[in-house]
Simulated assay, not measured.
Amino acid sequence: MTAKRPILLGIVGDSATGKTTMSSGIEQILGPDRVTNICSDDYHKYNRCQRKEKNICALDPDCNYIDIMEGHFEQLRRGEPILKPVYNHSTGDFDPPVYVHPKEFVIVEGLLGFASKRMRDAFDVKIYLDPQEELRVAWKVKRDTTKRGYSAEEVLASLKRREDVSANCIRPQRKFSDIVVNFYRPEGFKEETGTYLNTKLILRPTIKHPDFSEFIDQRPDRKKQCLTISLGRDEGSPVDILHITGNIQPVTAETLMDIIMDHLQGVEPLPTEGVGHYTEGTEAKNSYPLAITQLLTCYHLLSAKSMVG
């Protein structure tokens, strides 16, 4: 019997939107032995010094080998190995390429994964991370000052320089996603960056989502609901919008995760230990909205796998 081809997940978003946190949790749920995880930002044409000389931003498609990405994503979808470039964010230069053979699931995270139709067509599931901008800035400053050696002033200056490129090259990819993930602070929580963030999931009809309405509609007091689902429009098209509050109770979150799993027939239950975990500095924390988003993504990946002949 011919082996099924790998299932590809694309996770796209601007810098410091949580792409690695999202993909790491999904990999943990499915099992690292089943997942190949690559970063499309490795396909830069120029190192940091060359970009400065040429006055070109890493977010610009012209600064990246889009054609090689297209070919590599198609090869991975066919189950073929690739020789992937490696960009080192610490040195700003390139390390030797690595041989990558796709496993059952391939996660591709990065800035420009949906920049061309050929790339988009390679993915079975497409997610765009679109957190509240003030929140993204806080994440960016915290990450780049603690892990990449920059000062807060340097990070903020970099964000300002990149604003036009981000608006013109990164954010337009949002409309091509199946799910848009929007983390945002609750009203009055100006410093909150993690555990108690609310989440809005825009669910486009490009893929079939579980039906959450039966559980959600049974909540007696809508004003106190930590879960709501509504119809709306996004990018001019009708969508379902799932709202999850950061103060969702564990029993409610776990019930919703059970609902997601109940929609998967003939699949071994996924582990929920470690779901929704993230680090803030050196401190490990947990977010139920993040956990639900990661598990919903795994549901779609397993659904896609069941349909592949």
Rank of each mutant, 00 (worst) to 15 (best):
R78T: 08
Y99N: 08
E74M: 12
T228H: 02
R204P: 07
L30N: 06
P250W: 07
C169T: 04
P269H: 11
K52H: 08
L59S: 11
D95W: 13
G194A: 09
L256C: 03
S230L: 06
D62V: 11
G13Y: 01
F215P: 00
S40C: 12
H101L: 01
P269N: 05
P172Q: 09
E273C: 08
Y128C: 09
G25E: 02
G113D: 02
A58S: 13
D262V: 08
T252L: 02
G25T: 06
L296G: 04
K147A: 03
L296R: 03
L270G: 05
E154G: 11
G276V: 00
C226W: 02
T146R: 12
L270H: 07
F212P: 10
P96H: 03
H209Y: 01
S303K: 14
R185K: 15
E70Y: 06
N55K: 15
R77F: 06
V137D: 09
Y184K: 01
A122T: 10
F189P: 12
D211K: 04
K147E: 09
A167Y: 00
C169Y: 14
D93W: 03
V98N: 05
K117N: 13
F183W: 01
R148T: 10
A3G: 03
E187N: 04
K117L: 12
G110H: 02
Y99Q: 10
L231R: 09
F212T: 09
V180M: 01
K142G: 03
H101Y: 10
F215N: 00
L296V: 12
A122R: 04
L59H: 06
E268M: 14
G246V: 04
H243E: 15
L159P: 08
T2W: 08
L201N: 07
R118I: 14
G276E: 00
E192N: 13
C298R: 02
G79D: 12
S177F: 05
Y196F: 13
P81S: 08
T145G: 04
K223I: 02
T293P: 10
S23R: 04
C57G: 01
